[in-house]
């Protein structure tokens, strides 16, 4: 994909509203020295950072730099070789996510967390209707009123710009962009506080990408969601994130506020990355 082209139509400075600051706040997520090795190969190595409520963090870096590995380790889709991830539960307690029981972990993942896959087929049930795809999480947490579930699903379809009357269609009948928006609705319906996204606009063409990014930006701000977004597209990072982590060969080489990193990169590698991508 031609990154220079992608960024052409995007603004040069961040449109992300500032994260509402509250000094009494505590981090939502703490990542401490997380490493993952595939045999002798480094997936990611010694990664630490905090994520605050309502904050959007972009993880950027070239292909193979360890972005997906890190995201999967934090979201418990994968077990890191070493390190710790702590999450502040709704009751305010900080819990080590790899110490949660399987049932607790699943409950967390279908209520408080969301995961948006690059390929919608990985995050959707392709053979059940859009309504059931959105409604599944509600049913999983015990909602048992069909009419209410359906109404909530229809509202969410509308929020992600899918016509209500497509509620009984299967995602197979949807375009790539619609599938991705359906996946987002399916994740947001339980009001999660943290959403993980791996290249959410990756498989889409440029105009569809722009629309999806607009939608995501709106939803994230409106709902005060915290998110970790993996992308190798700096324009996506610019549009969505407050803060950025730049990865190379499994390690973090630069981190900072998105505008600062993009406008004044410190690490030579980041400078190279940005100049090669954001050239005018």
């Amino acid at each position: 994909m031609n990154k220079a082209h992608t960024s052409d139509h995007l603004p040069k400075s961040s449109l992300v509203p500032p994260r509402p600051m509250d000094l009494s706040e505590k981090p939502l997520l703490q990542v401490r020295s997380v490493s993952k090795y595939y045999g002798r190969r480094v997936g990611c190595e010694d990664i630490s950072f905090d994520l605050w409520p309502g904050e959007v963090l972009a993880i950027v870096g070239e292909s193979g730099s360890g972005k997906t590995t890190l995201l999967d380790c934090i979201s418990t889709r994968m077990t890191p070789t070493s390190g710790m991830v702590n999450y502040r539960m709704r009751d305010g307690t900080m819990r080590e996510v790899f110490r949660l029981g399987e049932a607790e972990k699943r409950f967390l993942m279908r209520t408080d967390w969301g995961f948006v896959h690059q390929n919608p087929a990985d995050g959707l049930r392709m053979t059940v209707s859009a309504g059931a795809n959105v409604g599944e999480r509600l049913m999983a947490i015990g909602k048992r009123h069909y009419g209410d579930i359906r109404e909530t699903a229809a509202d969410w379809l509308e929020q992600v710009e899918i016509a209500r009357d497509r509620i009984d269609d299967q995602p197979r009948a949807f375009s790539g962009g619609m599938r991705q928006r359906l996946q987002i609705a399916r994740n947001l319906v339980t009001g999660p506080r943290l959403v993980f996204m791996d290249e959410p606009t990756g498989g889409l063409d440029v105009s569809v990408q722009a629309r999806l990014l607009d939608l995501l930006r709106g939803l994230v701000a409106e709902l005060g969601l915290a998110a970790i977004v993996v992308t190798h597209d700096l324009a996506v990072a610019r549009l969505l994130s407050h803060r950025m982590v730049v990865m190379k060969e499994g390690r973090v080489i630069e981190t900072g506020l998105t505008d600062r990193v993009l406008d004044d990169p410190q690490a030579p590698y980041t400078q190279l990355l940005i100049s090669s991508i954001l050239q005018v």
Partner: peptide, 22 residues
């Protein structure tokens, strides 16, 4: 088997939901 183990049964109602929707 994992779904039974952790009582993760949302899927079962998805089937009933689809019945009613269709």
């Amino acid at each position: 088997r994992k779904m039974h183990a952790v009582e993760d049964y949302g899927l079962m109602h998805v089937k009933l939901y689809e019945d009613i929707a269709q």
